[in-house]
């Protein structure tokens, strides 16, 4: 019944590894209630091999023993289960398309709720806040930025990034159609850039799992990029269903440049608005 625990033919150490991953994820779920069982296998396997090297264990079974019996192992393992690769204004054309196509409609709402799902260390949430500020919409906006990794959320809340990353962020921001200078929004000192408190007044960072949690507010825009690629199809469908149920009528959904709603059972609820930048709009009620 449970396809996720479908055991494949066991021959050789590779297949043992498959079994051990499933057992480890089950242990994490039972003990910590975080559900990674619907994560796509191939990249997870790679990250679990990296985790074995980091923890100095020979097998995932040994790692499972530590996850169950040593309190500090799971928080550290979380950084291998989740992916914290992010940058500000990543794929600048996505943000440009938001400005050109979505912002004019957002202007028609007296107040705005925007959900950045899977925000990791916060770069995309700050990008969204800066974009809204530039478009004169931040004052009436609240951005809900969610993730399952508490350490990533902690970094996001602090809004402090290595100054060496600013060159890339600034180039992306300019390409995204930025109307101001990115340096208006941070203070750089001692190799770090601290993003403005004024932006943070419109950002709420919180713990939310696309695998186990539910809809929490009604949004005009949901942005969830490079998260769905880490999910298997049933979990992708759950997440896309949550986005649909969160959106107002004719609300907007943006996903990653190489992601698609095409294979989802909810594809019919959305229409493509900007195809090459993966921006969708909810269809109206018929």
């Amino acid at each position: 019944m449970d396809a996720q625990v479908e055991v494949q033919e066991a021959h050789g150490p590779e297949k043992d590894f498959d079994i051990e991953i499933q057992l480890l994820l089950q242990a994490v779920y039972l003990k910590y209630h975080s559900d990674f069982r619907g994560y796509a296998g191939a990249s997870l396997k790679r990250r679990m091999r990296a985790a074995m090297a980091h923890f100095g264990v020979r097998t995932l079974t040994q790692l499972q023993d530590r996850v169950l019996h040593e309190a500090d192992t799971y928080p550290a393992l979380m950084n291998f289960l989740t992916v914290q690769v992010s940058e500000m204004f990543r794929d600048p054309s996505y943000f440009r398309a938001l400005r050109e196509t979505v912002v004019p409609i957002l202007r028609t709402y007296p107040s705005l709720k925007i959900w950045v799902a899977g925000c990791s260390t916060g770069e995309e949430a700050y990008s969204m806040a800066i974009l809204l500020q530039e478009e004169g919409l931040l004052e009436r906006s609240m951005i809900y930025a969610t993730d399952i990794n508490p350490q990533a959320l902690h970094t996001a809340e602090a809004g402090v990034y290595d100054a060496e990353r600013l060159t890339g962020f600034t180039a992306n921001h300019r390409l995204s159609g930025g109307r101001s200078s990115l340096s208006d929004y941070y203070t750089a000192a001692y190799g770090r850039a601290v993003f403005d408190k004024q932006l943070k007044q419109h950002l709420v960072f919180s713990d939310h799992s696309l695998a186990t949690d539910h809809v929490f507010a009604e949004m005009q825009l949901v942005s969830c990029r490079n998260v769905l690629i880490y999910f298997n199809r049933p979990l992708q469908d759950r997440a896309i269903g949550l986005f649909r149920d969160s959106l107002v009528r004719r609300g907007f959904l943006g996903i990653g440049a190489k992601e698609s709603l095409r294979f989802s059972q909810h594809a019919g609820d959305f229409e493509e608005l900007v195809r090459e930048d993966r921006i969708y709009q909810m269809r109206g009620v018929p």
Binding site: A3, A42, S43, V85, N226, I229, N232, G256
Partner: peptide, 24 residues
Amino acid sequence: APPDYHLLVDREEGRPVLALSSDE
């Protein structure tokens, strides 16, 4: 493989499928 994404082979419902990741 598309630029700036890792390309992997994964299995979904027993079939080989393409998978992308933006890992490190």
